[in-house]
Nucleic acid binder design. Structure first.
Lengths: 280, 280
DNA sequence: ACCGCGGTTTCATGTTGCGAAATCGGGGCG
DNA sequence: CGCCCCGATTTCGCAACATGAAACCGCGGT
């Protein structure tokens, strides 16, 4: 059965299941096993298994009453995450450019990605200082201004989980003691910006602030990176306030309820914040 | 290695690949093969194949420069489709209720789904007439007011494709002759509403109109269903104009450019319309 | 009570997904 | 200038596992 030359490294079950997923979505999301099987020309047993698998993974939802499938919560969540990030990048871009010009330094926009920040946009100043990080690189959460800004605005359980893991020591200044780090995070949650003094890369100081999505979750963060020697703490604080304000403006554009300026998560010693109420 | 009892009908490659997909999205969409492999604990060969498959299917995008993966156009398209339909349903609901009350009859909201309309919402009047269709059911495009309204506003190539297939004869009145049907579709495209006189179910007359998404594509349609005997053609035309107007208002809320009231597709004998210019 | 249609379960089969290891490629450092 | 190392591809043989025909079940209609 030569048929398709199977040119490449395509895993057939995956490919077909994705076809099923796409079909369900395109079909306006109320689909029976039979129609999937017929429309895509795959035996119903197989279609059944794919629907089952997709449902279990939360990509589809199974309405047992009429035995129909529709798009599931996981897919919706993914869509929202993606569009939030995309919008945040778009909104942030002019801000990043402005920051580069003002401080003559590298500015970063990064997303949170399991235990790390991943740089999406890195804009270098023409003449100024440059850091090692390039778009696509990843760094620990606890050793960067970006990451600390995110950590400080994260729901408590998630932050706690991260902090309970061993923290990599990137430079001699990296904060690896949990109590110390948590103290700083609380302060960041209050002030709305994070300062990092060579904790990730020797000689580089960063000042960053989080951008919150419509649920108040710190999806991305922006920062400036300057030579450690060039900026005093008080200057950094001024910059921090400014950056924090810019980030907050973007958060507001993303729909992060007008009720929360910049103090959602870890503020107040043991304050607990939930991204989504456990209401289900 | 008992581990998971694999209780059920889950296809492992699919499950794992969905995990990879979710990871890429959650990670803020700039991910290397290695991080996927490490984070999910699957050998890199396998991760590679999944990424490859997901990319080929358009669910991911592969940035060859830095060898990173991010969310692909297909996933974005799915997300938009879903959210459009969801919004359309929400916006349409009060309209449906109003129509039920006004006409004392069943009203429908259906989506287009490969060669058929699938009923999403069916609201019955308390006392009045009821049709067979229930939420989740499907009917042919050419035999229902809903379907004809959609067909008439569909991009020409897609409509042509459908019409070139054999058309099922649901009742004695079903239009199965292509020329005749096309003539009617052109008229529907102009007037903005479709009338069906017992062509899908004996004794039931329907009047329907399409709701266009932000691309001008007829994603869903709404209709009322009354006993064939109860409504004259002239009454139906009045109702049609009203329904068409309501549908157009919803289309506008969905962002269907303010430049097109109700006449996008098949209008004017051979007019051609493209959903998306073939530029891609 | 019968019939038929869709969904679920079973089961034997061989296709095909898997992952260790070898290969390639490129960027950084000496 | 060339070596080295890391990460992405490719190869390849094995048996795990996806597959789909067929049997089974439950329901809704007649």
């Amino acid at each position: 059965m030569p048929g398709t030359p199977a040119n490449s490294y395509v895993v057939q079950p995956v490919e077909k299941a994705l076809g099923v997923l796409a079909y369900v979505v395109e079909c306006g999301q109320v689909v029976s096993l039979k129609s999937v099987s017929q429309a895509l020309g795959i035996p119903k047993t197989t279609a059944f298994r794919y629907l089952q698998t997709l449902t279990r993974a939360g990509f589809l939802e199974h309405h047992t009453d009429r035995d129909r499938y529709s798009v599931g919560p996981r897919l919706r969540a993914m869509a929202r995450t993606d569009s939030s990030i995309t919008r945040a990048r778009e909104l942030a871009h002019p801000v990043l450019v402005a920051l580069t010009q003002e401080y003559q330094c590298t500015v970063n926009l990064a997303v949170k990605g399991d235990g790390s920040v991943v740089y999406l946009d890195v804009i270098d100043s023409l003449q100024g200082f440059r850091t090692k990080a390039r778009s696509g690189d990843a760094n620990p959460l606890h050793s960067t201004a970006l990451g600390k800004a995110i950590l400080a605005h994260m729901p408590q359980p998630e932050a706690r989980d991260y902090l309970s893991r061993p923290l990599m020591e990137r430079t001699g200044r990296t904060l690896i003691e949990r109590a110390e780090l948590e103290r700083q995070l609380r302060q960041i949650a209050q002030s709305g910006y994070a300062i990092e003094t060579g904790e990730n890369e020797d000689g580089a100081m960063c000042v960053g602030a989080p951008i919150l999505d419509d649920q108040g979750y710190p999806l991305v963060a922006i920062s400036i990176a300057v030579p450690l020697a060039r900026m005093s703490t008080s200057h950094a604080m001024v910059a921090g306030r400014k950056i924090s304000e810019m980030a907050a403006r973007i958060s507001r554009s993303l729909g992060s309820g007008p009720s929360m300026p910049t103090v959602p998560a870890a503020v107040a010693a043991g304050g607990v914040s939930q991204r989504t109420a456990p209401a289900g």
